[in-house]
Computed example of a mutant assay.
Amino acid sequence: MKSWNLNEAKTHLSSLVDAAARGEEIVITRYGHPLARLGPAAPPQERPLGFYPIAFTSDLTEPADADTVRDFEEA
């Protein structure tokens, strides 16, 4: 794990980000005290297509009752 002071890190940010993308961890310090850690981002998690956790309480193919239609039209 490499350590860079804040001023050096600002100057070499692009190369530090490239190093982090390759898997290196970089600690950014101020006055010798660690402030932040720069490392590789976690890969995005895949989610199954077509999955949406919802449960319908009514049949959407049936016509709505008069109160629901009125509320919809007033909105």
Score class of each variant (00 low, 15 high):
Ile54Ala: 14
Leu38Ser: 03
Ala55Phe: 10
Pro43Asn: 03
Ala19Glu: 07
Ser15His: 07
Ala20His: 02
Met1Leu: 12
Ile28Cys: 02
Arg47Asn: 12
Pro63Gly: 01
Ala36Val: 11
Asp67Ala: 12
His33Thr: 12
Leu16Arg: 00
Asp65Glu: 08
Trp4Ser: 04
Gly39Tyr: 04
Asp67Asn: 06
Arg37Phe: 02
Ser15Asp: 13
Tyr31Lys: 13
Asn5Gly: 03
Asp67Lys: 09
Ser14Thr: 12
Pro43Ser: 05
Glu46Thr: 14
Ala64His: 06
Pro43Val: 02
Leu60Tyr: 02
Ala75Val: 08
Thr57Tyr: 06
Tyr52Phe: 14
Ile54Gln: 13
Arg30Lys: 10
Val69Pro: 00
Asn7Trp: 06
Phe51Lys: 12
Pro40Trp: 01
Phe72Glu: 08
Ala55Val: 14
Ala20Asn: 03
Leu13Cys: 09
Ser58Ala: 12
Ala75Asp: 03
Gly39Ser: 12
Pro40Asn: 05
Trp4Cys: 09
Leu38Asn: 00
Gly50Val: 01
Leu6Ala: 09
Glu74Lys: 14
Val69Ser: 02
Arg37Thr: 05
Asn7Cys: 10
Ala20Leu: 05
Thr29Met: 12
Leu35Asp: 07
Gly39Lys: 09
Ala20Trp: 01
Ser14Lys: 15
Pro40Ala: 11
Ala42Leu: 06
Lys2Thr: 06
Gly39Asp: 08
Pro48Gly: 13
Gly32His: 01
Lys2Asn: 11
Thr57Trp: 10
Glu62Ser: 05
Asp18Phe: 07
Val17Thr: 04
Arg37Asp: 00
Leu16Tyr: 00
Ala41Trp: 03
Asp67Phe: 04
Glu73Gly: 11
Thr57Pro: 04
Val27Arg: 06
Pro63Met: 02
His12Asn: 08
Pro40Arg: 05
Leu60Ile: 07
Phe72Ala: 15
Glu24Pro: 00
Asn7Val: 11
Val69His: 00
Glu25Ser: 06
Pro34Gln: 06
Thr68Trp: 03
His33Met: 06
Ile26Ser: 03
Pro53Trp: 04
Ser58His: 08
